[in-house]
């Protein structure tokens, strides 16, 4: 069976800077994939290309059998890709519930149905009781959960989480990891997480892909990637040396 998402030697330049160079990867349905790399490695650029906010200069992106290389974000969402943002982007002046209703309206035109689904997702993401609060007044951890709930409301097949755990306290991070596992198990959603905190990604992911300076340098089981000499040099090496 063809993978759910296939990126074929995608290249993205900004002026002279090569943000992604011939990156190829595949994500199978049912996986949790970790996408890691130091800051500036091109992870978010890759996310932006997959979700249609940018288009690769060269290469091809195929999702669920459809070529989405030049497709706009809203169409990619309709095909079944949802994402969250590195810097949270909740609809600040709308309530938490209304945020999720907007997502649910992707699959229904009936407000009552969308509200019911939104309520259920707030429950699922443990935001019950926050539904009537304007999103701008939520804590960072709650905003991140809200973004996940809003993304899930669009009934994605693939969920891309961009640093869903950065800036959280250790307790909040543990809860977020638990939430990601529950999304995978209970909702059967394929997940790709971008993190630069390795300690979070390793136990969570079935497979880890490492980017460095826009190039994919490793792709495999977490244990194997940790032992990869290139990865250690490019990424872990710096960190270990610093400690």
């Amino acid at each position: 069976m063809a993978p759910l998402l296939q990126v074929e030697s995608s290249t993205k330049r900004f002026g002279g800077l090569l943000a992604n160079r011939e990156v190829s990867l595949a994500i199978e349905a049912g996986e949790i994939v970790g996408l890691i790399g130091p800051n500036g490695a091109g992870k978010t650029t890759l996310f932006n290309c997959i979700t249609g906010y940018m288009h690769p200069d060269e290469g091809r992106i195929v999702f669920d059998g459809a070529d989405v290389t030049r497709t706009r974000p809203e169409r990619i969402c309709r095909l079944g890709v949802a994402r969250t943002w590195q810097v949270v982007r909740a609809f600040g002046r709308m309530t938490a519930l209304e945020n999720v209703v907007c997502g649910a309206l992707q699959r229904t035109n009936r407000i009552a149905e969308a509200r019911a689904r939104a309520g259920a997702l707030l429950e699922f993401t443990e935001l019950r009781g926050r539904g009537d609060m304007p999103a701008a007044t939520l804590t960072l951890a709650d905003k991140k959960r809200l973004e996940i709930a809003r993304a899930l409301a669009t009934r994605p097949k693939l969920l891309l989480l961009d640093e869903a755990m950065s800036g959280l306290t250790p307790i909040e991070t543990a809860a977020a990891v638990k939430l990601v596992r529950r999304i995978h198990e209970e909702l059967q959603v394929t997940i790709c997480v971008v993190e630069h905190v390795m300690e979070v990604v390793m136990p969570l992911s079935h497979r880890v892909i490492v980017l460095d300076y826009g190039v994919k340098i490793a792709d495999g089981a977490p244990q194997a990637v940790v032992r990869d000499s290139q990865v250690i040099r490019a990424y872990l090496g710096d960190r270990r040396a610093a400690r």
């Binding site: 979700t51 249609g52 906010y53 706009r72 974000p73 809203e74 969402c77 309709r78 949802a82 994402r83 943002w85 982007r89 909740a90 609809f91 600040g92 002046r93 709308m94 209304e98 209703v101 907007c102 997502g103 309206l105 992707q106 035109n109 407000i111 973004e147 809003r150 993304a151 409301a153 669009t154």
Partner: peptide
Amino acid sequence: RSKLGFYFRAIRDDQEAAESIGID
């Protein structure tokens, strides 16, 4: 109260985020 009202306000609050949940 309709889908339109929700989508309009979503675009006002954050256009990119609105697009990410399928709003044209």
